[in-house]
């Protein structure tokens, strides 16, 4: 029973940061800009957040939990700023969006690794490849946590899970109910229609890409404060790509993507718990950690046909084109 309980708790703790990254991807792609750069965005955002957390921790003596909130905000800012690079390349200079995304990922890894080792030397006296952050507090909801099985949902919650769910609810509203969202989705289907109606395609897409970067940054920061307890190059584990897989299976729609993320989270945590349950040695953990990726491959086989990506995704907007 304990294994199932842990699977749910850990699964959600993984799924929810993954979800916010995927929502970021949805914003970008729905506006017509293919976003393979989520991996780079989340790393760079987390780097910025971790940097701020380290500075705050060193010079103000603030505790882990308080710095976390500043770090999340900073990760959003850092991620969006880094995303302007993708925006400039894809929107301003009409670069190939796939290539731009890949380049931004590679650049993100090397840039943050380099900066981390340089700056950690300044802060800690000796250069290392990480900023130590610690792990966020967790809390349980009294009463609800004792419900059989489902009580796991209310046990050992990271506060950032709640924050993310609130943000994503707002983003859903922004995407489907507001003027901005309506134009954003139109940009991804037929940008000429937006232009003809007096909307600004480039601006809308740019904002969407920046939102996407910021959200990915928050996701990365959460992983740094939960799975890793530090910022280091190990943040580039490929979760950004997993978020892309999630949004594709979720058919570029926020709610279905949420369920896909939960599914991925449970699969990952389930694999780990299964390994423990069978009493296998830790070297097998890695094998079980391939679960979500094997599932991704299988899902790709079955769901690819049904999916409808935004029609104009990947196409730089060209006014003259008919």
């Amino acid at each position: 029973m304990n294994y199932v309980h842990n699977m749910i708790t850990d699964g959600l703790a993984f799924a929810i940061p993954l979800f916010i990254m995927a929502v970021g991807g949805i914003f970008s792609e729905k506006s017509g800009v293919i976003n393979l750069a989520i991996e780079g965005f989340q790393g760079f955002g987390a780097f910025c957040g971790a940097l701020l957390a380290t500075v705050l921790g060193m010079y103000t003596g603030m505790g882990t939990q308080t710095t976390l909130y500043f770090a999340l905000a900073m990760a959003f800012v850092g991620g969006s700023l880094y995303a302007t690079l993708h925006g400039l390349l894809c929107i301003r200079f009409n670069a190939d969006q796939v290539i731009s995304g890949v380049v931004i990922n590679i650049l993100g890894v090397s840039l943050t690794t380099f900066l981390t080792s340089q700056l950690s030397g300044v802060f800690y006296g000796s250069a290392s490849n990480k900023f130590t952050l610690g792990v966020s507090d967790r809390f349980s909801v009294p009463g609800l946590k004792s419900v059989p099985v489902l009580g796991a949902v209310f046990t050992n919650i990271y506060p950032f899970e709640i924050i993310i769910l609130v943000i994503c609810t707002y983003l859903w509203y922004l995407m489907y109910k507001t003027r901005f969202g309506m134009r954003l989705r139109a940009c991804g289907d037929h940008p000429q229609a937006v232009d003809a109606a007096g909307g600004d395609v480039a601006r809308t897409r740019f904002i969407a890409v920046m939102i996407s970067g910021g959200l990915a940054g928050i996701g990365g920061m959460c992983f740094a404060y939960s799975l890793l307890s530090q910022f280091s190059p190990s943040i580039y584990l490929g979760y950004g790509y997993l978020a892309i897989a999630a949004l594709i299976f979720g058919n570029w729609s926020i709610l279905p993507t949420f369920f896909v993320c939960v599914f991925f989270g449970l699969a990952r945590a389930g694999g780990y718990q299964l390994c423990l349950f069978m009493g296998l040695s830790s070297q097998y953990t890695n094998l079980f950690m391939t679960f979500p990726y094997v599932l991704t491959l299988l899902l790709l086989l079955f769901f690819s046909k049904r999916n409808r990506p935004p029609r104009a995704a990947g196409e730089p907007y060209d006014k003259g084109k008919r």
Binding site: R185, A186, H190, A193, V194
Partner: peptide, 20 residues
């Protein structure tokens, strides 16, 4: 326009109000 500027997955109404 000769080539329609319509968002295919939107309703008729949504296309008409797009922009205003």
């Amino acid at each position: 326009h000769q080539h329609f500027k319509l968002v295919e997955n939107y309703t008729v109404g949504e296309n008409i109000v797009l922009g205003i």
